[in-house]
Design a protein around this nucleic acid. Structure first.
Ligand SMILES: NC(=O)c1ccc[n+]([C@@H]2O[C@H](COP(=O)([O-])OP(=O)(O)OC[C@H]3O[C@@H](n4cnc5c(N)ncnc54)[C@H](O)[C@@H]3O)[C@@H](O)[C@H]2O)c1
Ligand SMILES: NC(=O)c1ccc[n+]([C@@H]2O[C@H](COP(=O)([O-])OP(=O)(O)OC[C@H]3O[C@@H](n4cnc5c(N)ncnc54)[C@H](O)[C@@H]3O)[C@@H](O)[C@H]2O)c1
Lengths: 181, 181
DNA sequence: CTTACTTTGTGCAAGTTGTCACAATGATGT
DNA sequence: ACATCATTGTGACAACTTGCACAAAGTAAG
């Protein structure tokens, strides 16, 4: 695969692809391009995503269910090893092979199962408290679906997912284009 | 609210906030800061997100359900006016006040209900075909959950949501930090 | 009114990112 | 063996972005 092809795929330019890759080393063969499989492998290693991670899901609601049953997580190395919820109706029931735990045992379970990442799929007003407890329990990163800016130490990365903003980005592009014409 | 406060909130610097805003005009009062409500309003207008949009949901599966029942969409001006699915078991049943339509009536319904945005929550191998039909039917933008790069005309914006990549971004930051220490 | 204080808007300098263009390198065919 | 072709890796430069610093403008209080 040539840098030209990679650029088309990634919506950028050939020069950009080559320069970006060159920061990590020299992967291609002149006159021939890059060997896709090998490139992919080496990049996964460089990015640190060539291993699997233990994940806990907090919030067994609608979005939590969709995520839990999403096969792409497991196949890319993200193993859900615990589910938490505060709803007494849900606690004790099971999804697949995971039974839903109470937050009372949060710290113990997090440590026992060596959880590294937490997915927060709970209402905004509960998110900060659980985030703080997760950090306290030694979590390494947080994927947050609640529409709130979490306050955590600088060294703990947080990725926010905000689907409303995605829609607004579309709306913005649409109105912008209409103006240009 | 001062540029200093806005900067803390948005994880940037005060100078950056002021310069960015100054591109659109002069919103603040010296010695006093910005009036938050008014600023918000004026930015929403400038960004073209001060009106409501008609949205169709394609794919009444797990993620589709979570999205459909997510109240933040409606409250920010995104009205779901149609749901489509290909599963005969689902067609004809209703979610709230919307009954699920067959793709047979896709073009007709899209036009009748004046759909402007489409949310694609269907398997990757069906996404391209529906995307093309949606464009043909005059849609203005697509929010795509399927893990595939859609091929649509340049003038139709597409926003991709890929949650695996969000997790991988976390993993990357974590390994990176470990190396620095 | 005047003085002390706060905060904006912006010119300028420093830093970062993207593009161009081309020598170097290897593949391929005669 | 050689000529031709495709494509990389990179230096030089252009374009863009960010941060600094300060005059201008406004508030507040005596
Ligand atoms: N549904 C969506 O499409 C969507 C999209 C983006 C973001 N979000 C956000 O994700 C979060 C969850 O959304 P949802 O639609 O799944 O809501 P939901 O109401 O279906 O589920 C929330 C779950 O969290 C549990 N819960 C409440 N407080 C808790 C606590 N303190 N600890 C543990 N569990 C607790 C509830 O029992 C429930 O099971 C919300 O913050 C929402 O804004 C949802
Ligand atoms: N579940 C998640 O958390 C999640 C997260 C991110 C992305 N995704 C992606 O979103 C898509 C849907 O995921 P899901 O978990 O909701 O799957 P799902 O199997 O629960 O739902 C898919 C739905 O699409 C319908 N469908 C299939 N082919 C169709 C077609 N041609 N036209 C209309 N409807 C059709 C099915 O009948 C089903 O109702 C997939 O591409 C998946 O990769 C899912």
């Amino acid at each position: 695969m040539s840098s030209e092809q990679l650029a088309a795929w990634g919506q950028t330019t050939a020069a950009q692809v080559r320069k970006d890759l060159s920061h990590f080393g020299s992967f291609g063969k002149r006159g021939l391009g890059y060997q896709a499989g090998e490139l992919c492998e080496r990049l996964r290693t460089l990015l640190g995503i060539d291993r699997s991670w233990k994940v806990a899901l907090v919030g067994a609601g609608r979005i939590g269910l969709a995520l839990y049953e999403y096969p792409a997580f497991r196949s890319r190395g993200y193993d859900c090893v615990a589910i938490f919820d505060s709803d007494p109706e849900k606690i004790g029931t099971a999804w697949g092979d995971q039974s839903i735990c109470s937050l009372d045992v949060f710290e113990r379970v997090m440590e026992e199962r060596d959880v590294e990442l937490v997915i927060l799929a709970i209402p905004a007003d509960a998110a900060q408290e659980v985030a703080s407890r997760a950090v306290e329990a030694g979590v390494n990163g947080i994927l947050n679906f609640a529409p709130i800016r979490l306050n955590v130490p600088d060294e703990i990365p947080v990725e926010d997912v905000n689907l409303v903003i995605e829609l607004e980005a579309l709306s913005f592009q649409i109105t912008q284009r209409k103006k240009d014409v």
